[in-house]
Amino acid sequence: MLDAHPNRLPNLVGVGYKPQHFQAIMDDPSPVGWLEIHAENYMGDGGRPLAQIRHLADRFPISVHGVGLSIGGESRLDPEHLARLKHLVSWLNPAVFSEHLAWSTHDSHFYNDLLPLPYTQDTLTRVADHIDELQNTIGRQMMLENPSSYLAFAESTWSEPDFLREIAKRTGCGLLLDVNNVFVSATNLDYDPKQYINDYPLEHVGEIHLGGHDEDEDDHGHVLLIDSHGAAVVDPVWALLDHTLAKAGPKPLLIEWDNDVPDWPELAAEAQRGVYALSKQAALA
């Protein structure tokens, strides 16, 4: 039986939690309204990490974000991973759980990357089956995140927004819209990011992510953006967020910063920009 009220995040700004920020968040959490953790970091049985999260969960809504389920993989979902995830969700009772539209496993091999998928009928069926299994296992709705893309598949027969719309329709899952991923993919694959947002099934979005990226070049000297989560959000992504919020209305907004993590004042300042973005939209509504 799925949770009848799956998304309990407030329409406020959250940050990806890092243990080095624990005391600063406890001392002065503004402007943070909620926290996100990566599921795989909290699947153990004890120790300081779990003690900190239990303490934080008394004060903040927690979003659990998975990075290792390989929702798009050809093999069945790992039953041991599912069991550990079910245990985490059961005791923590997070506001939401989310995962990526990607694959990272093949046979017994695990790749430390979130790899893209062709948008075909076979992929649609496989991803929908995996989401059904996941949601039935954890007893609640999950949210599926759009990927950052570096190539397109010739065999794709669906656009990404239409593919995600159909997944949400078939499974009842929600969607996590990563605006930085949209900007990265649009730059790499040469399409209009605003048009992508216009085509996106925003009615299913329960959470929005923002993060930083790195700029490189491909073999032909063209700009190649890498979704690194290791820098501040750039101004064009903030502008794309404004466009998104104008169409979707206020949503829970997360600042992701997973690599080269700054001290708390810098991350808090980035979160404050998110607060400003949400307040601008509220003023215009």
Rank of each mutant, 00 (worst) to 15 (best):
V179A: 11
V205P: 03
S156I: 05
E203L: 02
P201C: 11
S159T: 15
D192K: 00
E155N: 09
D178H: 11
W158M: 14
L164H: 05
N180R: 06
W158T: 04
N198G: 04
D190C: 02
S185T: 15
D162K: 12
F183D: 04
D162G: 13
V184G: 08
A168K: 03
N180E: 13
I197C: 09
H204Q: 14
L175C: 09
F153R: 03
L176N: 10
S156W: 00
E207G: 06
N188I: 01
D162S: 15
S149L: 15
A152E: 15
L202T: 09
L176I: 08
N146W: 10
V179E: 06
Y196H: 15
N198V: 03
D190N: 14
G206C: 10
Y200H: 01
D162C: 04
S159N: 10
F153H: 13
N181C: 09
I167H: 02
S149W: 08
I167P: 09
N146I: 08
L151P: 01
I167L: 15
L189N: 04
S148F: 10
C173E: 08
L175M: 11
V205I: 14
R165G: 15
A168R: 04
P201Q: 03
D178P: 13
L175Y: 12
G206W: 00
D199L: 12
D199Q: 14
T187P: 01
E207K: 14
G206Q: 13
W158A: 06
A186C: 08
L189E: 12
G172H: 01
L202P: 08
F183R: 03
R170V: 02
S185Q: 03
P193A: 07
R165P: 03
I197D: 09
V205Y: 00
L177Y: 09
S149I: 13
N188S: 01
S159H: 07
N181S: 11
V184Y: 04
L175S: 05
R165Q: 14
L177V: 11
V184S: 06
P147F: 05
F183Q: 09
H204F: 14
E203P: 00
N188F: 00
V205W: 00
D162Y: 00
A152H: 03
N146G: 13
A154M: 12
E203V: 08
K169N: 11
N180I: 07
N198C: 04
S185F: 01
T171I: 08
I167R: 01
K194M: 12
L164R: 00
E155S: 14
E203F: 02
N146E: 14
A154I: 11
V205N: 04
